[in-house]
Design a binder for these strands. Structure first.
Lengths: 187, 187
DNA sequence: GTCTATATCTTGATAGAC
DNA sequence: GTCTATCAAGATATAGAC
C-alpha cells in the first residue's frame, strides 16, 4: 500500500532528522531502514525539500493534537503547563532525539523557504498555546507569580527548545529536568 | 606565516559551523574563503574532527575570557547577568549564527568523542560561572527572588541556548530579547 | 606550507524497464 | 510502486612535487 511506505518513510526520516540533523541523514539511510531502494523514495518524496516539508506538516499537526489533548484532560494552568513540559520531556527519548524544529534550525541555510515558513508557523502555534496556559494560570492562580503571560510564553518556548539541546548534549534526561526546576516549582 | 593561515581557517570554520551546522560546510568552502586549496587545509587540520576540536578549544577559551572580563568590569549580580545575556545577544549576529555548541549538538552523531567531551566541559564551565552570578545576585540582592542559584543557572544556560535557537529560526534579534524579558525584569 | 593530481565514497536525483 | 542502472556533483582524504 502506498500510504504504508510513505508513513514508514516519514517515521524513519523524522527519527533520523531529530537524531542526526537535516544534513546528517541521506536517502540511503532511509532506504536501508524501510527496506526499499533509495530511488523508490523519490516516488513518494521527489526531493529532500519536499520530504522535510511533509515532516514539518505532520509534526505541527501531531503537536497541535497533543496540545488539544492536554487542554481536554486538564483544566488548570499549572496542570496544563506540567503536561506540556512532560510532552517535550518524552519527545527527548532519553536524550537521543531533539524536537524536529530544533534539529532543523541548525541547518537553516540548507532548508527550503517552504519549510522555514512551516517552522515559523509551528513556533507561532506553540507560542499561542503556551500563552493561553499562562493566561489561565494567572486567572486561576495555579501558577505562582504570573504578571506577563506573553513574556512567560516566549521564555518558556525558548526554555523547552534549549533544555532539549542541553539534554541532548549530555545525553541525559536529568539535564532536561534540571532546566525546569525553577518553572515546575511555581506550579 | 603558519599561524595566520591557521587562525584564518578557524575564523572561517567557526562562522560556517555557526551559520550552517557541522555537516553544512566543507573543506572546499573554507579553501575558497581563505584563498588556499582544500588539500592545504589538511596540513593544518588533518581531519574535520581535529578541526572541530580546535574550534571548541578556542571557543571555550574565548568565552571563559569574556566571562572573566565581565567579572572584572561589573561587581553586582544583576550587572554581570545582564552583561552575560548581552554577550550571547551579540554572538547571535542579528540571528545569523548560533553559539558553536548549539550548532554542533544537532549533528551530535557526526562528532568525535573528543569534541563531545569538550562540549560537556564548556557547559560545565558556563554553568559554574552562571551559578556564581546568581549566588552573588542573591547575596547582594540585585537579582529579585533568587532562592536556588543552582536551578537558576541550569535554567539560564538552557534559556541562553534556546533563545539563540528561536531567534535563529526567525532570524530576528527581537525574538532573543523577548525570551529574556522575564529574566531581565528581575535585574 | 602550498600546490596538482588523484582516490574513494556518498550525495540527491533521473530514465526507463517491469 | 519498486526496481536497476546511471549520473554529475560534492565530500574527506592522501601522495608526492615544489
Amino acid at each position: 500500500m502506498s500510504t504504508e511506505t510513505k508513513t514508514a518513510l516519514l517515521d524513519v526520516a523524522e527519527h533520523a532528522a531529530r537524531a542526526r540533523g537535516f544534513d546528517g541523514f541521506s536517502y540511503a539511510d532511509l532506504a536501508d531502514a524501510v527496506g526499499i531502494r533509495k530511488a523508490s523514495i523519490h516516488y513518494h518524496f521527489p526531493t529532500k525539500a519536499a520530504l522535510s516539508e511533509a515532516l514539518m506538516d505532520r509534526y505541527h499537526a501531531t503537536l497541535e493534537t497533543e496540545c488539544e489533548k492536554i487542554e481536554a484532560e486538564y483544566d488548570t494552568g499549572s496542570a496544563r503547563l506540567l503536561a506540556l513540559i512532560s510532552l517535550y520531556r518524552e519527545a527527548l527519548n532519553d536524550g537521543k532525539t531533539l524536537c524536529l524544529c530544533v534539529s532543523l534550525i541548525s541547518s537553516r541555510e540548507s532548508l527550503s523557504n517552504a519549510v522555514l515558513e512551516k517552522i515559523d508557523a509551528f513556533h507561532a502555534m506553540m507560542l499561542g498555546r503556551i500563552q493561553a496556559i499562562f493566561d489561565l494560570g494567572q486567572e486561576d492562580k495555579t501558577i505562582a507569580g504570573v504578571t506577563n503571560p506573553t513574556a512567560e510564553a516566549r521564555a518558556t518556548l525558548a526554555l523547552l527548545e534549549g533544555a532539549h539541546l542541553t539534554a541532548r548534549a549530555a545525553e541525559s534526561i536529568q539535564t532536561f529536568d534540571a532546566a525546569f526546576e525553577m518553572l515546575t516549582s511555581r506550579c
